[in-house]
């Protein structure tokens, strides 16, 4: 046992749990999203096919986004931004396929995305990737092979994104305005991701003012808000058609 170190000490694990935790985080998120959709009275067929398509999209975009951005096959690995784009693509595609409670279905996926991200961040915290800046204060952690302490950025992100999920769920349940809820959740998640990147060590290694993570987060945010505006217009047009007849 290590007693002379004042901060929490994280050993490198013997069994690598990283990928297992990431996949189970995605599965937990899908179960939560399906529960929300079930409570919102979607058809069972819609729920099953949407869950399937979104899972495929998350896995494919999460794994290929690293290669796409860096242009290097060796940089294959699961990226959070790719997973986010996967959620957006999967939810949007199944929205236009099934045409069943469109806004509610989209919102339930956007709300659940921060939960998936938050749970998968615990894997980063345990395995010691994407470490935080040097810091010596409350809650500081140290990884094996380093004799200084770091800010627990991954644990903070996990807590923050779980909180964003709870906020989104509360707004969804009490306001009953799905598109507004998804916009708020999206903006909160992008703001959290953007600001937490300043606490990561990798932020200060980048050549530019904004790091790669921040640029990807902004791109994700703009794509998401563009999709929400498109869905809003589409639904208004549908409503106009029904009322006009």
């Amino acid at each position: 046992m290590i007693n002379n170190i004042p901060y929490e000490y994280i050993r490198s694990l013997h069994f690598p749990v990283y990928s297992v935790i990431v996949v189970s985080a995605i599965l937990v998120g899908i179960v939560v999203a399906c529960t929300i959709m079930y409570r919102l009275d979607l058809r069972r067929k819609t729920i099953i096919y949407t869950a399937l398509l979104t899972f495929v999209c998350i896995m494919v975009f999460g794994l290929s986004m690293g290669i796409t951005v860096s242009g290097d096959i060796r940089s294959i690995g699961f990226t959070g931004a790719g997973g986010g784009i996967g959620v957006l693509v999967g939810a949007t595609a199944s929205l236009f396929i099934h045409r069943d409670h469109e806004a509610e279905m989209f919102a339930s996926w956007i709300i659940t995305a921060p939960l998936m991200y938050g749970i998968s961040k615990t894997a980063c915290h345990v395995s010691g990737c994407c470490v935080g800046i040097k810091y010596d204060g409350f809650g500081a952690i140290s990884y094996e092979g380093e004799n200084f302490s770091r800010f627990p950025v991954q644990a903070t992100e996990a807590a923050l994104f779980t909180l964003i999920f709870l906020i989104g769920l509360a707004i969804m349940l009490f306001s009953n305005k799905p598109l507004m809820t998804s916009t708020i959740t999206l903006i909160l998640s992008i703001a959290a991701k953007f600001s937490m990147d300043y606490l990561r060590a990798s932020h200060y290694e980048s050549k530019y003012a904004l790091s790669e993570n921040q640029i990807l987060a902004l791109v994700c945010g703009f794509i998401g808000i563009g999709i929400i505006i498109l869905i809003d217009r589409f639904l208004k047009k549908q409503r106009g058609k029904i009322n006009g007849q």
């Binding site: 495929v56 290929s64 290669i67 796409t68 860096s70 242009g71 199944s94 396929i97």
Partner: peptide
């Protein structure tokens, strides 16, 4: 080389997703 690798990986993942989407449309 980097650009070609990036674009082709994006296209191949898009094709894979499109295959799933078309299958689900056929099922529906």
């Amino acid at each position: 080389d980097d650009a070609i690798v990036g674009v082709s990986s994006l296209l191949s993942s898009a094709a894979y997703i499109a295959a799933w989407v078309l299958m689900i449309i056929a099922r529906v």
